[in-house]
Measured scan of single mutants.
Amino acid sequence: MEVRTIKVFTTVDNINLHTQVVDMSMTYGQQFGPTYLDGADVTKIKPHNSHEGKTFYVLPNDDTLRVEAFEYYHTTDPSFLGRYMSALNHTKKWKYPQVNGLTSIKWADNNCYLATALLTLQQIELKFNPPALQDAYYRARAGEAANFCALILAYCNKTVGELGDVRETMSYLFQHANLDSCKRVLNVVCKTCGQQQTTLKGVEAVMYMGTLSYEQFKKGVQIPCTCGKQATKYLVQQESPFVMMSAPPAQYELKHGTFTCASEYTGNYQCGHYKHITSKETLYCIDGALLTKSSEYKGPITDVFYKENSYTTTIK
């Protein structure tokens, strides 16, 4: 009895394709271990004539594949690729409408935090270190965002349907971005203890939790000093293409032309909904596939993004 075979390709990165001759009487799992086709788990399936010449994702289970996976995804987590594939199996079914010149995501599976993050990423200057993220990001900007969303979920250790947080998501993504040249110098002034300067680099240099107003941050924000008295913390120097200011959701007025974009969060910790506000020729609110415009805006804002380049204080 002759062994019926077909020729397929296996890959971990969709760049390096490895030619395989597979036995049609055995499952993919018996031949390769966990195997995925377009995100779908085909591990328990036997090869079919229609699979001839198709590319299958496999887990990096030998040295060659491990090197290829690390170079593309910059992670050695053995569960990463499987999590990416199972997320992709959902995100490829989502709709990605162009809204006001940006790629958004039609609401499904509690994905409003991903839509808000995706919209924000198209408006701030950011370059990702893992080629996987950078490639998928370019495709997302062009309207094909399924891979990018699935990668975000995998890097953030999230599953489809789980509630997510924009600030946490951005923080994970910033860790995989090139923020080497970003720098922030802060000064804390206390009447009792004097003053202390701190220099922050990388992710810490672009994120701040405690106030939404970048102007206020430049002037000074009140913080408790270690001595128990009130101290003032203010920005001395900022070198970065953008800054992200966050605070627990509270009524906040966004003035046209003073910011790049913002995240609105309605609801409580267990259950809520994100919308995205962007400042173009007027203010726009993007909620999944829905767009509304207004000249002014007041609502429960939790993150505001500002364009920056270089700032030095005039406070002496």
Rank of each mutant, 00 (worst) to 15 (best):
E2A: 12
E2L: 10
V3S: 14
V8L: 10
F9V: 09
T10V: 12
V12M: 08
D13H: 04
N14D: 10
N14S: 13
I15V: 09
N16S: 08
H18R: 08
H18L: 08
T19Q: 02
T19N: 13
Q20D: 07
Q20R: 13
Q20H: 14
V21Y: 15
V21T: 14
V22Y: 01
D23P: 10
S25R: 12
M26C: 14
M26D: 12
T27R: 10
T27K: 09
Y28Q: 05
Q30R: 09
Q31S: 14
F32P: 06
F32Y: 08
P34H: 10
T35S: 12
Y36S: 05
L37S: 12
L37W: 14
L37N: 12
D38F: 10
D38M: 09
G39Q: 09
G39M: 09
A40F: 13
V42Y: 14
I45D: 15
K46W: 14
P47E: 04
H48Y: 14
S50M: 14
E52Q: 13
E52A: 14
E52F: 11
K54M: 13
T55S: 12
F56W: 04
F56Y: 10
F56E: 03
V58A: 06
P60V: 04
N61V: 09
D62Q: 08
D62F: 07
D63G: 07
L65I: 06
R66M: 14
V67H: 14
A69D: 09
F70R: 10
F70M: 12
E71L: 08
Y73H: 03
T76P: 13
T76E: 09
T76G: 14
D77Q: 08
S79Q: 15
S79A: 15
F80Y: 04
F80V: 03
L81W: 08
R83I: 06
Y84H: 07
Y84A: 03
A87D: 02
A87G: 07
A87V: 05
H90I: 12
H90Y: 12
K92L: 10
K93S: 11
W94I: 04
Y96E: 01
P97Y: 07
P97G: 06
N100E: 14
T103C: 08
S104N: 07
S104F: 06
I105L: 06
W107K: 06
A108K: 07
A108G: 04
A108F: 05
A108N: 06
D109Q: 14
N111K: 04
N111E: 03
C112F: 00
Y113C: 05
Y113I: 02
L114D: 01
L114E: 02
L114Y: 05
A115Q: 10
A115D: 03
A117S: 09
A117C: 08
A117V: 12
A117R: 02
L118D: 01
L119T: 00
L121K: 04
Q122V: 03
Q123S: 08
Q123R: 05
I124G: 05
K127W: 06
K127I: 09
N129R: 15
N129C: 08
N129W: 08
P130S: 06
P130R: 04
L133H: 04
D135I: 08
Y137F: 14
Y137H: 07
Y138I: 14
R141L: 10
A142Y: 11
G143F: 01
A145Y: 04
A146T: 02
A146K: 01
N147G: 10
N147V: 10
N147F: 07
N147A: 10
F148E: 00
C149E: 04
C149N: 04
I152W: 02
I152D: 05
L153A: 02
L153F: 09
A154F: 02
C156L: 08
C156D: 00
K158W: 04
T159M: 12
T159V: 11
E162G: 06
L163R: 15
L163V: 13
D165K: 00
V166Y: 06
E168S: 13
E168A: 12
T169V: 12
T169I: 10
M170N: 05
M170S: 07
Y172S: 13
L173N: 02
L173C: 07
L173S: 03
F174M: 07
Q175C: 08
H176E: 06
A177M: 03
D180L: 06
D180H: 10
S181Q: 14
C182H: 03
K183R: 13
L186G: 03
N187I: 09
N187Y: 07
V188A: 05
V188N: 04
V189I: 11
K191N: 13
T192H: 11
T192R: 11
C193I: 02
Q196A: 10
T198E: 13
T198D: 07
T199C: 12
L200A: 09
K201E: 10
G202C: 03
A205W: 00
V206G: 00
V206S: 03
V206P: 01
M207A: 07
T211S: 09
T211V: 09
Y214F: 10
Y214E: 01
E215A: 09
E215R: 06
Q216G: 07
K219Q: 12
V221K: 04
Q222N: 11
C225Q: 02
T226H: 14
G228E: 03
Q230V: 13
A231Q: 03
T232D: 04
T232R: 09
T232S: 06
Y234H: 07
V236A: 10
Q237F: 13
E239Q: 12
S240K: 01
F242T: 01
V243K: 00
M244S: 00
M244Q: 00
M245A: 01
M245Y: 00
S246V: 04
Q251Y: 14
E253D: 10
G257S: 07
T258Y: 07
T258M: 10
T258Q: 13
T260D: 00
T260L: 15
C261P: 00
S263V: 13
Y265W: 04
T266Q: 13
G267R: 07
N268F: 11
N268D: 14
Q270Y: 07
C271F: 13
G272I: 00
G272R: 00
Y274D: 00
K275E: 01
H276P: 02
H276T: 06
H276M: 08
H276V: 02
H276Y: 07
I277E: 00
I277W: 15
K280A: 14
K280E: 10
K280S: 12
E281I: 03
T282C: 07
T282D: 14
T282H: 11
L283C: 08
C285R: 08
C285M: 14
C285Q: 10
C285I: 13
G288D: 04
A289D: 13
L290R: 13
L290S: 15
L290Q: 15
K293I: 09
S294E: 10
S295E: 15
S295L: 13
E296D: 15
E296G: 11
K298G: 07
G299I: 03
G299F: 01
P300M: 13
P300R: 13
I301L: 07
D303S: 01
V304T: 00
V304W: 00
F305P: 00
F305S: 00
Y306M: 00
Y306P: 00
N309E: 09
N309G: 11
Y311A: 09
T313C: 15
T313G: 11
T313I: 14
T314L: 15
I315R: 15
K316I: 14
K316N: 15
K316W: 15
